[in-house]
Design a protein around this nucleic acid. Structure first.
Lengths: 165, 165, 165, 165
DNA sequence: TTTT
DNA sequence: TTTT
C-alpha cells in the first residue's frame, strides 16, 4: 500500500528463557514470551489492580537471535521494536487458528537488554546495562565521519563523559 | 511488573467502514480493520513483492469512537497509537480461540485521520488532514509558563474541534 | 495543521539529579538531563566507538514532576515519551538563542523509571522496576466489556500507586 | 551507557522544498523543514488555539536523500523516524550556538511520503502514498520460513522500487 | 477488506 | 516556512 507503518514497541520481562530453533537451512529463529503489565487503582473500590499482557515475540534476524540466545534469560527486561504479524495455522484436529506475533525481522527491528539479570537459571555473563544495539546483522550506527567536515564547527559530539555510566 | 511499555503505532488504511456497537450501559465500541503493507523487490527474481497485514483495532474511548463513527470510512488513511491485547473466547463449537487486537482505551491512545477521503460510500464531511487528537474524554489544566503560545498541559487537545466534545 | 505527530521516545540515564523549580503560581517544573548513547565498531579500524547525546527534558505535568522529584536521581535509567519544542530566549548579552527540549506536558507524555538505582547521592526509596505511568493528573476508567477475563477492565492508569497522587 | 533509545517520530508538512548539499567527497545531505502543529480550544476563552513547531531534519542516508530530492516538495506530508542530535557551532561573530536536529542516518531511520501533493512549484512525479522505506544503503538476507509471503528478513525494503537502489 |  |  505504501505510506504505511507497522510498529510495536515493548518494554517488558521475559517469562521464560528464549527458545531457539533452526530452519532446515540452518538459520536461527528465537521465540520470546514477553510480559508487559499495567497497574492502577480502581476508581470505586480503591483497590490496586494489575493487568499483565503476554506477547509472542519472534526473531528472524540472525544477529538478534544470537543476542537472545547468549544474553537473555527468564526475567530479563528488554526493549523491543518489531512489527505485528498474524499467521494462520492448523492444529492437530484440523482447526484453523490464528496467532499474532511481534516479529523482529526487518532493518528497523531492535532488541535491547535493559538490565543485566541472569534470570531463572543461567549464569549471567553479559554485564548489566551493556548495550546490544539493534540489528547486528548490518552495519550499525556507522560512525559520523561527515559530521566534522561540512556542518559549522566541530562535529556534533556533545560528549560529557565525566559521568560514569 | 512495571517499568513496562506496550505500544503499537500504525499508519494504514481502513478495509471497511468502522463498525460501532454499544455496551448494555450505552458506551460505544468501534471496530476498525486496518491494513498496512510493505513492498520490496525480490533479491533473486527481481520481482516486486507485496505483503499486507490486517489489524483489528478496537476503540473503547468514547471520544475516539465518535470520531471513528463520524469521519472514518472505508479507505481512509489513519495514524493509530494503541496497545496490544489478546483475548480468549470460545466459538460455537466450544473451541478456544485467541484474538489479538490493537486497543485504544488509555490516556495515551491516538487516532488521527491522515487524509480526507470519503472512502467507499459515504459522503466525507470531515476535511482532509484534520487532526483528531487523542482521548477526548478528559483533560486537566496547568500551563507552560515559558512557552510563549502553548497548549494547556495535561490537555488532550491535539484536535481541531469545531467538533462538539 | 492537523494530522500531525510530534513524539520523542528516549531511554537513557540522568546525568544529574532532577532540578525542580516552581512557577509564580506554584506549579512545579522539572528539568532533567538525559544521556543516550550508542556504541559501534568502526568499519575500518575495528575500534569500539561511542557517541553520547545529551537531552534536555522539561516536565510541566504536575504528577510527573512529583515522580521526578521523589524518585529520580542522577544515574537513574528512564523511559520518556514527550514532544519536541524549541524556544527562543535572549542571553545576558542580548544575543538570541534557541533551545530545543523534550517536553512532557500533554496527555500522552510518559515517564517511567526502568531501574531502582538510588543514583549519585540520595537514598533511593522507590523500588526497582516500579512503573510510574504517565499523566497522573487525569484518569477516568472505562471498561473492556468484551475482554473475556473480567479482571482486566479498562483502567488508564499504567501506574503503580501506593504513591499518593 | 547502553540499553539506550533515541527516537523521534514526526508526521508533518514540509515548509519548503528540501535543500540538498554535497560533502566534498560527494555524499548528499538533505535538509528538511518540517512543521507539526496541534490545535485546541482554550479552556477559558473557548477560542481555538494553534501551536506550530518547526523541526530541522537532516538526512545523511544516501537513499533517503535521493527520495527527498526527487519526490518531496514544499507542502508534502511526511512520516519521519530519526534521532535527536545537538551540534555546536560558532557564528560569524564568534558566538557559540547549539542546534538540535532530527537526524536520519542509522539503519532504523524512516522517511515516508504520506500524500502525493506536488507542493508549491514543482511537478509532482512520485505517486500519492508511495512508500519510501528506510535506509536503503544495506541489507542482508535470511528468510521467514513460516510466513507464507514474507519480505526478506534483514532487508530494508519497505519500499516501492521502480526506483533503482 | 484497504492502499499503490 | 507547512498544514487546517
Amino acid at each position: 500500500m505504501a505510506g504505511s507503518v507497522n510498529k510495536v514497541i515493548l518494554i517488558g520481562n521475559l517469562g521464560a528463557d528464549p527458545e531457539i530453533k533452526r530452519t532446515q537451512d540452518g538459520r536461527p529463529i528465537a521465540n520470546l514470551r514477553v510480559a508487559t503489565s499495567e497497574t492502577w487503582r480502581d476508581k470505586n473500590s480503591g483497590e490496586r489492580k494489575e493487568r499483565t499482557e503476554w506477547h509472542r515475540v519472534v526473531i528472524f534476524n540472525e544477529g538478534l537471535c544470537r543476542i537472545a540466545e547468549q544474553y537473555l534469560k527468564k526475567g530479563a527486561k528488554v526493549y523491543i521494536e518489531g512489527q505485528l504479524q498474524t499467521r494462520k495455522w492448523t492444529d492437530q484436529s484440523g482447526a484453523e487458528k490464528y496467532t499474532t506475533e511481534v516479529v523482529l525481522q526487518n532493518f528497523n527491528s531492535v532488541l535491547t537488554m535493559l538490565d543485566g539479570r541472569s534470570g531463572g537459571g543461567g549464569g549471567g555473563g553479559y554485564g548489566a546495562d551493556d548495550s546490544m544495539g539493534g540489528d547486528f546483522g548490518s552495519s550499525g550506527p556507522s560512525s559520523a565521519p561527515r559530521r566534522a567536515p561540512a556542518p559549522p564547527a566541530g562535529g556534533r559530539h556533545d560528549m560529557d563523559d565525566d559521568i560514569p555510566f
